[in-house]
Write a protein that binds this DNA or RNA. Structure first.
Length: 817
RNA sequence: GCCGGGGUGGCGGAACGGUAGACGCGGCGGCCUCAAAAGCCGCUGUCCGCAAGGGCGUGCGGGUUCGAUUCCCGCCCCCGGCACCA
């Protein structure tokens, strides 16, 4: 009995032991000197969590484990792997939760962090606990503020009054990226439009570079595509339509429009301004001011909500003003309609109802003229339009351009407009500047002081951090002003430039600014006189591999690229892309839906780890599907990997010193080959399957393993089940951690070669038999052997043989007929 | 509507254009045990057949090929993202 207990697999004993030893020996942590002198550095990054009160859920653990497996693999191959962990703990989510349960974020977050830390240790991640980053700690946000100041000094941070997305429930401004279908991504409340003075980062200046660089980085294609769509580059032309009075004389005002189809300018039969367009007032006829202003007013109120509803019924009003179409010379009416958005292009369009679906619908509704200027192969110049025609064809009703193919006409018409001075080619992006102001409490104060005479002044770097004061009343209100604006003793200060009485900025910054640079901070987390140490940064960055969720494809990943680019331009770092490789992991699905608290299908990991151990849990999560695609979580599924580890343990603990059996050794080397190829490619599920198969061979017929057979398997399983691997490694008599040094098994091709192979015999592509032949048997002898197979002979008896296909080692196919 | 990713046994999932269903879960039968856990052995796509063997099978319809889950064309459905972006 006692003997049983000593040698039986007891996950919690093994895991406790090794987690303790890793801590005691500092297995996973680096000193500054070690970071400085690392020989083969590999920076393995995963997206840091928001430390919620609920603790880690299976989705988090899935992502972390997948990334940890990657890091551990590279470490077993002899690399020096830095794998840090941190907490993205500022933001509305924490603040709202604190409000809900009646506590203070400054009390809530440390206890959440402690709980997360406990859980993260328990799953056996290879985290460097000496380099933890907590974005809410003054030692971190001091440097977040420093980054703001660098942007400010470089003219890349700008304060402007702008229409912003306002969530009436969260009572704060949201970035465009945080508005989903017109509603707040966090609480689902319809978003309103407000005009508030905000700080913006000029990310649009970097749009082209952010797009171009996508070609140079090795990222998941889905993420690349999402970023590229989000940047939304389009090419076209900016055209100017002069405003004319009732007599057709030019007033001097010009409506500037952006279009991707300048070739259809001859079909522009009216103009549309967005309700917020500055020219609305100017062009509106006095007799129409009442309806126009009423429309503009209504649009402003409902704005983002109503505009982004699925209902796309067009509304609009005529202004009574007119433009001259510079191509045709015709006078055309100017309308105001909310289907034209102020945020895109120039906020005004030329409407070509014949060849744009939205314009067509609008023109139909308000009985505006619809003119064909493109004729497809089925049409002529006068074919009536039943709907907007957007297909290929050639221009008609377009004066000198008639007959030109649309594929070339964009260019020729633009050139003509340029020659005449009313337009030029233009590239446009969908991307907007990044609004970083938040009228909330739980974030880093924006380090700006407003002075009557000096204007907005950056807080001197020596005065950082601008500490977030602990205040009891941190509730937001509907005024659009931060809770900090209620704390006079905090916001009253002196102008850093002239010393006059001044007032601090009371907004805090967006959490995406916190997470936009944390990866640069990690290796320098213990440096307190600079945001990052130059030498260490040079050695460790950019990040080798970043693994995270694709929900951040256009938020965090775009902002962190932008910040990196700016820091590079400002000379602080010498790389402009933060992550060499990015891989998006899949999602854990349960009951047909993504595992999430709102869906109510979350699995709490702790009891599972308690029962089966972290190793089995990790292995199961990596086994349940391709890591980059996610998979279905099923409660009983862990039995398979648990049993596997159990058998592996039993075989290893009872291993003999006999030499390896050649047949088993062959399987072992085939497995080494496969696993070595698949793990770095994140093919975790098939790697585990291969190792299971290998163990099945080792144990076939109840045979005992020899140590030579099983030791390579133990090393290969170590990324998935690190505690178990360490324990067996130690029992095999090795000194120190299995993760110290290059312990990955070497693949020997000569040992993996099969001597005999099974060859399938097909007749007309259908498998009719299989024969065993020597692996190096010549074609003729294989075909001859195939021919005399009893079953095959029957099929070949009375038919003509037309062809024989031979695929070495695989099959022989007799084509008969 | 647009952009991604998918549709394979009861289930999760494997398959360089080459033996479809590896590996695992679940199920059935058996061994070990006082019992349980763990472990071990066998069977397990479906239909016909005692068997040998054969028919049918990777969402649907076509095509290319000696051979298609894989490539091409046209559909259907599911998941994720974006959405009046001119």
């Amino acid at each position: 009995m006692a003997h049983e207990e000593k040698d039986g697999y007891d996950p919690s004993a093994v895991e406790n032991k090794w987690q303790r030893l890793w801590d005691e020996r500092g297995t996973n942590v680096f000193t500054r000197e070690e970071l400085e002198s690392a020989e083969d550095p590999y920076y393995n990054l995963m997206m840091f969590p928001y430390p919620s009160a609920e603790g880690l859920h299976v989705g988090n653990i899935y992502a972390f484990t997948g990334a940890d497996v990657h890091g551990r693999y590279h470490r077993l191959r002899g690399k020096t792997v830095f794998e840090p962990m941190g907490f993205d703990a500022f933001g509305i989510h924490s603040e709202n939760f604190a409000l809900k349960i009646g506590t203070h974020p400054m009390d809530l977050i440390p206890s959440n962090v402690a709980n997360f830390t406990r859980q993260l240790r328990r799953i056996g991640g290879m985290f460097d606990w000496n380099h933890v980053v907590d974005t809410t700690h003054p030692s971190y946000y001091k440097w977040t503020q420093w980054i703001f100041l660098q942007f400010f000094k470089a003219g890349l941070a700008e304060r402007k009054e702008a229409p912003v997305n306002w969530c009436p429930s969260c009572m704060t401004v949201l970035a465009n990226e945080q508005v989903i279908g017109g509603a707040c991504e966090r609480c689902g409340t319809p978003v309103e439009q407000r005009r508030i003075a905000q700080w913006f980062f000029k990310i649009t200046k970097y749009a082209q570079r952010l797009l171009d660089n996508l070609e140079t980085i090795d990222w998941s294609p889905t993420t690349i595509k999402a970023q590229s769509n989000w940047l939304g580059r389009s090419t076209g032309a900016q055209l100017r339509f002069p405003v004319v009075d009732a007599d057709g004389n030019e007033t001097g005002d010009v409506v500037e429009v952006y279009t991707t189809r300048p070739d259809t300018v001859f079909g522009a039969t009216y103009m549309v301004l967005s309700p917020e367009h500055p020219l609305v007032e100017t062009v509106t006829d006095d007799g129409l001011r009442v309806p126009v202003y009423a429309y503009v007013d209504a649009a402003g109120k409902k704005d983002l909500v109503a505009r982004q509803k699925a209902d796309k019924t067009k509304t609009g009003v005529p202004t009574g003003g007119y433009c001259r179409n510079p191509a045709t010379g015709e006078v055309i009416p100017i309308w105001v309609a909310d289907y034209v958005l102020m945020e895109y292009g120039t906020g005004a369009i030329m409407a070509v109802p014949g060849h744009d679906e939205r314009d067509f619908e609008f023109a139909q509704q308000f009985e505006l003229p619809i003119r064909r200027v493109v004729a497809g192969p089925e049409h002529d110049a006068d074919t009536p339009l039943e709907e907007a025609y957007v297909g290929p064809g050639s221009l008609v009703n377009s004066a000198a351009f008639d007959g030109t193919n649309v594929s070339e006409s964009v260019e020729t018409v633009t050139a003509w407009a340029a020659e005449q001075g009313w337009g030029e080619a233009k590239v446009n992006f969908r991307l907007h500047d990044w609004c970083i102001s938040r009228q909330r409490y739980w974030g880093p104060p924006i380090p700006i002081v407003y002075c009557e005479s000096c204007g907005p002044v950056g807080v001197p770097e020596s005065d950082l951090p601008v500490e977030l004061p602990r205040i009891d009343d941190f509730r937001p209100d509907d005024s659009g002003i931060s809770p900090l604006a209620r704390v006079e003793e905090w916001y009253r200060t002196e102008c850093p430039e002239c010393g006059a009485a001044a007032r601090r900025e009371t907004d805090v910054s967006d959490t995406f600014l916190d997470s936009g640079w944390y990866f640069i901070r990690y290796p320098s987390a213990d440096v307190d006189d600079a945001p990052f140490d130059p030498a260490i940064t040079k050695k460790w960055l950019p990040v080798n591999t970043y693994i995270g969720g694709n929900e951040h494809a256009v938020l965090h990943l775009l902002y962190s690229r932008f910040i990196t680019m700016v820091l590079s331009d400002l000379g602080h770092i010498d790389f402009e892309e933060p992550y060499d490789v990015f891989r998006a992991h899949g999602l854990i699905i349960r009951d047909g839906a993504k595992m999430s608290k709102s869906k109510g299908n979350v699995i709490v990991p702790d009891p599972i780890i308690e029962e089966f151990g972290a190793d089995a849990f990790r292995t199961y999560l990596m086994f349940l599907g391709p890591f980059e695609e996610g998979g279905d979580y099923r409660a009983g599924g862990i039995q398979g990997p648990f049993g596997f580890l159990h058998r592996l343990w039993d075989s290893a603990v009872g291993a003999t010193d006999d030499p390896a059996d050649p047949d088993v050794e062959r399987k072992v080397h085939q497995t080494i080959h496969q696993v070595t190829e698949q793990i770095p490619a994140l093919g975790y599920n098939t790697s585990i399957a291969a190792m299971m198969e290998c163990l099945n061979v080792i144990r076939a017929g109840g045979r005992s393993a020899s140590r030579a057979e099983i030791e390579p398997l133990v090393v290969m399983v170590a990324p998935f089940a690190p505690h178990l691997a360490e324990e067996i490694w130690e029992r095999f008599g090795h000194q120190g951690s299995i993760f110290d040094g290059d312990n990955w098994p070497a693949y020997d091709e000569s040992k993996a070669v099969e001597t005999t192979v099974e060859v399938a015999i097909q007749v007309n592509g259908k498998r009719r038999a299989a024969i065993q032949v020597a692996a190096d048997a010549p074609e003729a002898s294989v075909v001859a052997a195939a021919r005399v197979d009893e079953n095959i002979a029957r099929y070949l008896a009375d038919v003509e043989e037309r062809r024989v296909i031979y695929v070495p080692g695989r099959l022989v196919n007799f084509v008969v007929g």
